[in-house]
Lab assay of single mutants.
Amino acid sequence: MEVRTIKVFTTVDNINLHTQVVDMSMTYGQQFGPTYLDGADVTKIKPHNSHEGKTFYVLPNDDTLRVEAFEYYHTTDPSFLGRYMSALNHTKKWKYPQVNGLTSIKWADNNCYLATALLTLQQIELKFNPPALQDAYYRARAGEAANFCALILAYCNKTVGELGDVRETMSYLFQHANLDSCKRVLNVVCKTCGQQQTTLKGVEAVMYMGTLSYEQFKKGVQIPCTCGKQATKYLVQQESPFVMMSAPPAQYELKHGTFTCASEYTGNYQCGHYKHITSKETLYCIDGALLTKSSEYKGPITDVFYKENSYTTTIK
């Protein structure tokens, strides 16, 4: 009895394709271990004539594949690729409408935090270190965002349907971005203890939790000093293409032309909904596939993004 075979390709990165001759009487799992086709788990399936010449994702289970996976995804987590594939199996079914010149995501599976993050990423200057993220990001900007969303979920250790947080998501993504040249110098002034300067680099240099107003941050924000008295913390120097200011959701007025974009969060910790506000020729609110415009805006804002380049204080 002759062994019926077909020729397929296996890959971990969709760049390096490895030619395989597979036995049609055995499952993919018996031949390769966990195997995925377009995100779908085909591990328990036997090869079919229609699979001839198709590319299958496999887990990096030998040295060659491990090197290829690390170079593309910059992670050695053995569960990463499987999590990416199972997320992709959902995100490829989502709709990605162009809204006001940006790629958004039609609401499904509690994905409003991903839509808000995706919209924000198209408006701030950011370059990702893992080629996987950078490639998928370019495709997302062009309207094909399924891979990018699935990668975000995998890097953030999230599953489809789980509630997510924009600030946490951005923080994970910033860790995989090139923020080497970003720098922030802060000064804390206390009447009792004097003053202390701190220099922050990388992710810490672009994120701040405690106030939404970048102007206020430049002037000074009140913080408790270690001595128990009130101290003032203010920005001395900022070198970065953008800054992200966050605070627990509270009524906040966004003035046209003073910011790049913002995240609105309605609801409580267990259950809520994100919308995205962007400042173009007027203010726009993007909620999944829905767009509304207004000249002014007041609502429960939790993150505001500002364009920056270089700032030095005039406070002496």
Rank of each mutant, 00 (worst) to 15 (best):
E2A: 11
R4H: 13
R4D: 14
T5V: 14
I6K: 08
I6Y: 10
V8S: 05
T10R: 09
H18F: 06
Q20A: 14
S25V: 10
M26C: 14
Q30T: 14
G33E: 06
G33T: 03
P34E: 15
L37W: 14
A40Y: 14
D41Y: 07
T43H: 14
K46H: 14
S50N: 14
S50K: 13
E52Q: 11
G53V: 07
Y57F: 15
L59S: 12
T64L: 11
R66L: 12
F70W: 09
E71H: 10
S79N: 08
G82L: 14
R83I: 05
S86D: 13
S86L: 12
S86K: 13
H90S: 12
G101H: 08
S104I: 06
S104P: 01
I105R: 03
A108S: 07
D109K: 05
N111P: 05
L114H: 02
A115S: 08
L118E: 05
Q123G: 05
E125G: 13
L126Y: 02
K127M: 09
F128T: 03
A136N: 11
A140W: 01
A145F: 02
A154M: 04
Y155P: 01
C156P: 06
C156M: 14
C156V: 05
N157Q: 08
T159F: 07
E162F: 02
L163I: 00
S171G: 11
L173Y: 01
L173E: 01
Q175W: 06
V185M: 06
L186N: 06
L186I: 13
N187A: 14
N187F: 06
C190S: 01
K191T: 14
C193S: 03
L200S: 10
K201D: 07
G202A: 04
G202C: 03
L212F: 04
Y214S: 01
E215S: 08
Q216A: 11
F217K: 02
K219Y: 07
G220V: 02
G228S: 03
A231T: 03
A231D: 01
E239S: 10
E239Q: 12
F242N: 00
F242Y: 00
M244I: 05
M245T: 01
A247G: 07
Q251A: 12
E253M: 07
F259Q: 02
F259C: 00
T260E: 10
T266I: 11
T266M: 11
G267F: 07
G267I: 05
N268T: 11
Y269K: 14
Y269F: 12
Q270H: 11
C271I: 10
G272M: 02
H273P: 00
H276W: 14
E281D: 13
L283F: 14
L283C: 09
I286H: 04
D287K: 01
T292W: 08
K293Y: 11
G299K: 02
G299C: 01
P300C: 15
S310E: 15
T312V: 15
T313S: 13
T313P: 09
